[in-house]
Amino acid sequence: MQTEDLALLSGLKVLIVDDEAGALDVTKRMLSFYQAQVIVCLSADEGLKQLQAHRLDVIVSDIIMPHIDGYQFIQAVRNFPSEKGRDIPAVALSVLSEGEAQVKAINAGFQKYLCKPVRIAALIETVADVAGINPNNAH
C-alpha cells in the first residue's frame, strides 16, 4: 500500500466517533488530507444517528467513551439492517494496548484495531484496506 497517493481515499465517506475533540480533529485531518469525506461525532449516540442519515463507507471509532463505549457502539451498528449500515467496515482506535482490547474489539464487530497515537500511514492504509481500496490494483 502506498500512502504517497494523496487521492487514495477520494470518494470514501468516513464516520469518525471519538469523545475527545482533539483526537477527533487530528483523525479528521489525516483522512481529509487523503481526500476522504469525513463526518465527525463526539459521541456514540451521535454516530448512530449519522449512520441513519448517511450512506457511509467506513467507520473509525474510539473505544473508551462515556455512556456508550466503542464496543457497545459497534455492536449496535452490527444489529442494524443491512441497508442501514450493518455491514460497514469499522476500525477501532484506542489508547488501550493491543492484546485483550484488540480481541474484544474484533469480537464486538470491528475489522481492524489501531493504537493511539496512530501514525498517519497506518491509519490511511488501514482505512483503505477495510474499504477494499488497492492502489496497486493487485487484487
Score class of each variant (00 low, 15 high):
residue 49 K to P: 00
residue 109 G to P: 05
residue 135 P to T: 04
residue 83 E to T: 08
residue 74 I to S: 08
residue 130 V to G: 01
residue 70 G to R: 03
residue 7 A to N: 14
residue 23 A to K: 04
residue 38 V to H: 05
residue 96 L to C: 08
residue 76 A to M: 09
residue 93 L to W: 05
residue 135 P to I: 02
residue 66 P to D: 11
residue 18 D to M: 09
residue 47 G to R: 02
residue 79 N to R: 14
residue 82 S to C: 00
residue 114 L to A: 09
residue 103 V to S: 14
residue 21 A to M: 09
residue 49 K to Q: 14
residue 25 D to F: 12
residue 8 L to C: 08
residue 86 R to K: 15
residue 137 N to H: 13
residue 34 Y to M: 02
residue 8 L to S: 08
residue 33 F to P: 00
residue 2 Q to C: 00
residue 27 T to Q: 04
residue 26 V to Y: 05
residue 71 Y to Q: 06
residue 107 N to A: 15
residue 22 G to E: 05
residue 37 Q to K: 10
residue 136 N to H: 15
residue 36 A to V: 03
residue 69 D to Q: 04
residue 107 N to D: 15
residue 133 I to L: 09
residue 79 N to K: 14
residue 59 I to L: 06
residue 7 A to E: 15
residue 20 E to C: 11
residue 14 V to R: 03
residue 5 D to F: 10
residue 4 E to A: 12
residue 100 E to V: 13
residue 91 V to F: 04
residue 125 E to N: 15
residue 44 A to H: 06
residue 57 D to W: 02
residue 8 L to G: 08
residue 53 A to H: 11
residue 98 E to F: 07
residue 105 A to D: 08
residue 106 I to W: 01
residue 99 G to L: 10
residue 69 D to V: 04
residue 114 L to Q: 03
residue 16 I to D: 00
residue 53 A to D: 09
residue 119 R to E: 13
residue 117 P to T: 06
residue 40 V to Q: 12
residue 71 Y to G: 08
residue 111 Q to P: 02
residue 37 Q to C: 01
residue 20 E to A: 12
residue 103 V to E: 15
residue 47 G to S: 02
residue 21 A to Q: 09
residue 28 K to W: 00
residue 73 F to M: 11
residue 111 Q to L: 12
residue 7 A to H: 13
residue 83 E to A: 12
residue 107 N to F: 00
residue 61 S to D: 03
residue 93 L to Y: 07
residue 55 R to S: 13
residue 69 D to T: 04
residue 13 K to Y: 07
residue 26 V to E: 02
residue 83 E to H: 14
residue 43 S to Q: 04
residue 29 R to S: 11
residue 24 L to W: 01
residue 123 L to R: 05
residue 68 I to C: 10
residue 72 Q to P: 00
residue 112 K to Q: 14
residue 124 I to L: 04
residue 86 R to I: 00
residue 121 A to K: 14
residue 138 A to P: 00
residue 139 H to L: 13
residue 88 I to W: 12
residue 12 L to F: 10
residue 115 C to S: 14
residue 53 A to L: 13
residue 32 S to T: 14
residue 31 L to Y: 02
residue 3 T to S: 12
residue 13 K to E: 04
residue 6 L to F: 13
residue 132 G to C: 08
residue 69 D to A: 10
residue 71 Y to T: 05
residue 74 I to V: 14
residue 100 E to W: 07
residue 32 S to K: 13
